[in-house]
């Protein structure tokens, strides 16, 4: 079998990320899929900008809500623009994404956690002077 390149000759075993196989777990296909993703992304972005400046919502909850909205929008982009689906032909892509997410989680939360504890345990200059006396 020769090398089947091109979008129309779809390999049934695997999908490249960003490649759309109609009927392979896509919520919507073609222009409709992109338009739906674009609409959802606009909605979530507008919500983020609105929430950030609004007085409607209890202040301390705003950062949490913003992070939730951002993660939701990243999910929308992955599903509608990058065509990452749950169907078996996407298993490799999803596994790579999951490992990437794990590394990102470790780097960001690990750094923040460790540095917050370092800051907590660090002496202020005044205390340090007292100890050195």
């Amino acid at each position: 079998m020769n090398d089947r390149d091109g979008y129309d000759a779809a390999d049934l075993r695997d999908s490249a990320p960003g490649e759309e196989l109609p009927g392979h777990g896509e919520p919507a296909s073609g222009i409709l899929g992109y338009a739906l993703g674009f609409g959802l992304a606009v909605l979530l972005t507008t919500a983020s900008f609105y929430v950030a400046g609004s007085q409607l919502i209890w202040g301390p909850s705003i950062p949490v809500l913003l992070v939730v909205l951002a993660i939701a929008q990243m999910g929308v982009h992955l599903a509608f623009f990058l065509h990452i689906t749950t169907s078996p032909d996407n298993t490799n892509n999803v596994l790579a994404l999951a490992f990437g997410a794990l590394v990102i989680f470790l780097i960001i939360f690990g750094s923040v956690w460790i540095m917050a504890h370092l800051g907590h345990h660090q002496m202020t200059p005044a205390v340090m002077m007292q100890h050195m006396r």
């Binding site: 089947r4 390149d5 000759a9 695997d14 490249a16 990320p17 960003g18 990437g100």
Partner: peptide
């Protein structure tokens, strides 16, 4: 797998490593 899929998958791995790079800047 066809070259199309291998190239796309390889580039996906690169992009994930690029996002890991960004996550280090985010952490900083």
């Amino acid at each position: 797998a066809s070259k199309h899929i291998i190239v796309g998958y390889g580039f996906w791995i690169f992009l994930l490593s690029d996002i890991v790079l960004f996550s280090a800047f985010f952490a900083a």
